[in-house]
Amino acid sequence: MPPLALFTIMLGIFLGTLMVTSANHWLTAWLGLELNMISVIPIIAKQKHLRSTEAATKYFLTQATASALMLFSSTLNAWQTGSWDITQLNNELSSTLMIFALAMKMGAAPAHFWLPEVLQGSTLTTTLLITTWQKIAPITLLYMVSNHAQSNITFFIGLLSILVGGWGGINQTQLRKMLAYSSIAHLGWTITAISITPNIALLNIIIYMTMTTPLLMMLTTTSSKTLRTVTTTWSHSPTTTITLTLLLLSMAGLPPLTGFTPKLMILENLVTYKLTTLALIMAMLSLLSLIFYLRMTYLLTSVTPPTTTQSTMLWRLKPHHNKPTAMLTPIALFNITMLPALLT
């Protein structure tokens, strides 16, 4: 991609997210989301492949549908209340439609169908962009309307997302699809907590992004796209393998790693609000996600391929990739061992 085109696209992504996070008017937020969407589509479709074109088309159609639903919701609220202010979403129907539109924007269930397919048709770098940066704008809007969000709607979307994210990831061998279902499950925890403890929900999604970033960057340096290629990482880069293992266990929510902290805080607040049954169901459903995290961890650490291979492994690290890997290791370790600081 030409440097000028890449600069224009990245500027559009940054400005679109900045417009949404600083907006007070629904039309300004909608305009920022549209600018963001238009900028991401060329990045998805830059590969000359039918799968990339299909992914870009699916991304455009779902994001355009969510934007139209969001615009309809805000217009309905302005018609009923006379206010275009984002924080004044007082109409119940508008609030329900807006929550569903934002869930579709992020890829939460039941509007999750586009996320695994789009990520599978994208590169690992584009996957990192969609699963982290592209969630900032919808999460910001969801945080701003959390006071008017109906708890039964957010609980339903959250539980369904945790179930779909865990159940869908078990049967996957493609890492990008597995990470897509992992994203859906983490969104479920965030949306469940958004109506009762918005700050903890925001903390949960921030920690997820800080864990996903080094994970996907390390997978990019090794060009690992399937579980089969992951098994040979140990023989070439033990440091990368150990770091990936700790990151995966942290994303699974095992103590004393960082990923356990927001889940513990969410469950604690649900019990405080007399929602013990909901907390128990969420804890049980999270075991589904734990299955494929542990399977990938086992393949990383316990499976060693034959050392006398007769074919060239094209995915293996090249010498100039050692420096990015060395830089990613302390970043990943910082994100893994952040638990004591969060609990104090």
Rank of each mutant, 00 (worst) to 15 (best):
I99K: 00
M19R: 14
S94G: 11
I170F: 07
Q134S: 09
V20P: 01
P238W: 11
N24A: 10
S122Y: 02
E268N: 09
L300A: 05
Y208S: 03
L264M: 14
T173Q: 15
T81E: 11
A56D: 00
L93K: 13
M282V: 02
P256M: 10
E34C: 08
T75L: 08
A56H: 03
T222R: 07
N199S: 13
L294A: 10
V145T: 09
S311W: 13
N199H: 14
A68K: 05
T62I: 14
K318T: 10
L203Y: 13
E34K: 05
I205N: 01
A108D: 00
A111V: 01
T126L: 11
L61N: 05
P306G: 11
T127S: 14
R228K: 14
I200S: 03
L288G: 10
T173D: 11
P138K: 14
H148Q: 15
T329R: 12
G259N: 04
M209S: 09
A137Q: 09
T337L: 15
Y208P: 14
S151K: 09
H186D: 00
A279G: 07
S183E: 11
T304P: 02
N335H: 10
R51I: 01
A149M: 14
L141W: 03
N171C: 12
F113S: 03
I205Q: 02
W26Y: 11
S161Y: 02
L119R: 15
F260K: 01
N36S: 08
W189I: 03
G166L: 12
L27D: 08
W26S: 06
V40L: 13
L339K: 05
S183A: 06
T190E: 01
L50R: 15
I336Y: 05
Y298D: 13
R51P: 00
P238Y: 14
A5M: 09
L89F: 05
P340F: 00
L285S: 02
L264F: 15
Y273A: 11
T231H: 03
F156Q: 04
P255I: 15
L280F: 10
I242K: 00
I139V: 15
I38W: 04
K105Y: 09
N77P: 06
S151F: 13
I153C: 01
Y143W: 14
L280Q: 04
T307A: 08
W234N: 03
T221A: 06
I184M: 00
L11I: 06
I291W: 07
F14V: 13
Y143I: 08
A137I: 04
I242E: 03
Q47R: 12
S235I: 12
I336G: 05
W133S: 07
T154Y: 00
L275E: 13
T261Y: 15
T337E: 04
L215A: 13
M1K: 04
T344F: 13
E268V: 08
M265K: 05
S223L: 09
A64I: 06
Y293V: 01
A29W: 07
Y59C: 02
M70G: 05
